[in-house]
Design a binder for these strands. Structure first.
Length: 193
DNA sequence: ACGATGATGAAC
DNA sequence: TTCATCATCGTA
């Protein structure tokens, strides 16, 4: 009987841990699909060795140049440039002069789309969320990975269709009947039904 | 119901 | 350069 080296356990543990991190491929799909599947995933922030983590419970999809509710509707600008970049990057911007909004970019490069993360189990509201997770525009255009200190993990939480509520997006009444009416907001219902 | 607070984008 | 607007929040 040979003793198994401690390094072996370290490598296995590290591999298992890494596997939880959601990778680029997951985000390289249509924004509404990514939005729906982000429910139940865990948003993780690590800054100076301290970790903040909470399950995502509310999101909104902003999908393509035709989406009149999207910042990208008027074309590429310095602010929305991240939306045109690769899937799996963060798009962080300021609204109302005081609230940072956290989005994850989706779909192919050149096609502007993203998912706004509006709430988690511990904090609901896009502005409160970024404050809680200590997120600012410093994270804009960085990749969702441990390197940037901000990423998403899959903890195996299964979200059933009946646990998901779909509604129109918040605060986009200017977008016209069609786009303002689209049910691109996904909320994980609390408790059962 | 509204003010805070500053970036954005369009008009001038 | 000015102006209205804004993927919000806390207080009233």
């Amino acid at each position: 009987m040979r003793r198994i080296p401690a390094a072996y356990f370290f490598v296995v543990a590290y591999t298992v841990w890494m596997k939880r991190i959601v990778k680029k491929k997951f985000f390289d799909r249509a924004a509404p699909i990514v939005a729906r599947e982000l429910l139940g995933k865990t948003l993780v922030r690590e800054v100076r060795g301290k970790r903040i983590a909470s399950m995502i419970t509310e999101v909104e999809a902003y999908d393509g140049p035709h989406d009149r509710a999207s910042h990208a509707h008027r074309g590429k600008t310095p602010r929305n440039e991240a939306m045109f970049g690769p899937a799996g990057n963060w798009y962080v911007y300021l609204v109302y002069g005081m609230h940072e909004m956290l989005n994850i970019v989706t779909g192919p490069v050149g096609y502007p789309a993203a998912v706004l993360i509006r709430g988690t189990h511990d904090v609901v509201g896009p502005g409160k969320l970024t404050k809680y997770f200590k997120i600012t525009r410093t994270q804009n255009k960085t990749i969702a990975a441990s390197k940037s200190g901000l990423w998403i993990e899959d903890h195996g939480v299964r979200v059933l269709a009946r646990q998901v509520m779909r509604t129109p997006r918040i605060g986009v009444s200017y977008a016209g009947e069609v786009w303002a009416g689209k049910k691109y907001r996904f909320v994980l219902k609390k408790g059962r039904e």
